[in-house]
Design a protein around this nucleic acid. Structure first.
Lengths: 233, 233
DNA sequence: TCAAAAACATGATTTTTATCATGTTTTTTA
DNA sequence: TAAAAAACATGATAAAAATCATGTTTTTGA
């Protein structure tokens, strides 16, 4: 869904919630979509503002985060090519409860609210995929919630590193996490103080599980990291 | 949706996700629904088993909870008349990731999976309400997640008491929470150790905010409780 | 490009929270 | 209904995590 291409031929089409949508509606979306490039740090939308549509990520990376009651960021989701953002508030009929910010230069297509909703009503394939997406996100949120309540920070940090790997994968070298996050962002993903995240990353390094080179994080011993995460499945 | 009544005349119909469903489909559901009474403590479904349908609560109360990796319960949701349970796993195509247990004697109608899914495909009104429900639950989960990551236990306990009040309301006296939960269940809702929950409840009592009489909890000073919860809105 | 700002790192300390221990009360059930 | 079990309560202690302090390194922007 880049400027010069179409939704019909979009590389992410069958990798997204639109995979089951009928051609007829994909064509309609193609007519009305607006494509844009967001630079690293640019805001797609801000907590508290009204949703006017949904955002399809064609390439790049985006973080979705809340501000807690005392102003501290909590990162709710990490998004990549093929993901859609901004549907939660739109479907609830709320303002955005989270902000979306590009983590690197990112190509995004905007689909206006009215069009998205009308297609959702006419295309049960899309509606079903949407429900599946919401259900999966709800599942993830409930698991995370349980882990936040019950697991120590060390385990949650290990889990977060594995989650980052699942989401963005490795660079060509096969061991470096394919995203640059600040220590503060990692802490806000784990749900802890920045210093604690830094300290535990140093421990993981000392234990030989990871290698740290600025914001580059290499996973040296994934199995040990899985053990450190203490997951049941 | 009791045994002797019909979905068409169900007192919860317009108070539920089926509020926008077409009569035609409500009639179909009425034909195939199976109504049951669950005694306090009885299990509707168990984490790990396969979903065969969804459960509509006609009266009574149900808790939905996860087991954490170390076997500790985390209560995910509290459900009441008009609520539907068991749709998450069904829509995701997963096994149940949580168990549902009746908190008191509860009347529940079961709607078989195939019927529910087929109606969902044919009735955009129901599909939309379902998406709205999922979005709202996702929102709630994200807020809770942020609070678990950022707020101290005292604030979370206060918030939990207010949440229980929002969900189940008061008894006729206007101050007693209309549900009986053990201290352990309250702790598993807050995400803390049972002793911590007990201790902080005692503090709230000492501060005159609540009155404790076994499992009966009376809210004496709601405003102070709101302040103790330190919510932003 | 170089000065300022931000991010990173780590030790020391304090606060928060969990765990352990023990006694009491309530609930269950044989 | 009485004995056993479960739940509740609270103090003492230990562990976990946050905060504070300070110095170093990296990044940013004038």
């Amino acid at each position: 869904m880049t400027d010069h291409s179409t939704c019909q031929s979009c590389s992410q089409r069958f990798n997204s919630v639109f995979c089951k949508a009928k051609d007829e509606f994909v064509n309609q979306i193609n007519e009305q979509k607006i494509c844009n490039v967001y630079k690293r740090g640019q805001i797609l939308f801000n907590e508290g503002s009204y949703p006017f549509g949904v955002y399809c990520i064609n390439s790049g990376k985006v973080k979705l985060s809340h501000l807690g009651d005392d102003g501290k960021e909590q990162i709710i989701r990490l998004l990549k090519a093929g993901d859609v953002v901004g549907y939660r508030a739109l479907l609830s009929g709320d303002r955005y409860s989270a902000s979306a910010v590009a983590l690197e230069d990112t190509q995004i297509c905007f689909i206006p609210k009215e069009l998205f909703v009308s297609v959702l009503k006419l295309d049960p394939g899309l509606a079903f995929e949407m429900m599946k997406l919401l259900s999966d996100e709800l599942h993830r949120a409930e698991i995370k919630l349980t882990h936040l309540a019950q697991k120590p920070i060390r385990e949650r940090l290990a889990e977060t590193l594995l989650f980052i790997k699942e989401t963005y994968g490795f660079e060509e070298d096969g061991i470096t996490l394919n995203v640059r996050l600040s220590r503060e962002e990692i802490a806000n993903l784990v749900g802890t103080a920045t210093e604690s995240a830094i300290r535990l990353l140093s421990e993981f390094k000392k234990d030989g599980m990871v290698e740290l080179d600025g914001k580059k994080i290499k996973i040296l011993k994934q199995k040990e990291l899985v053990r450190a995460a203490n997951l049941q499945d």
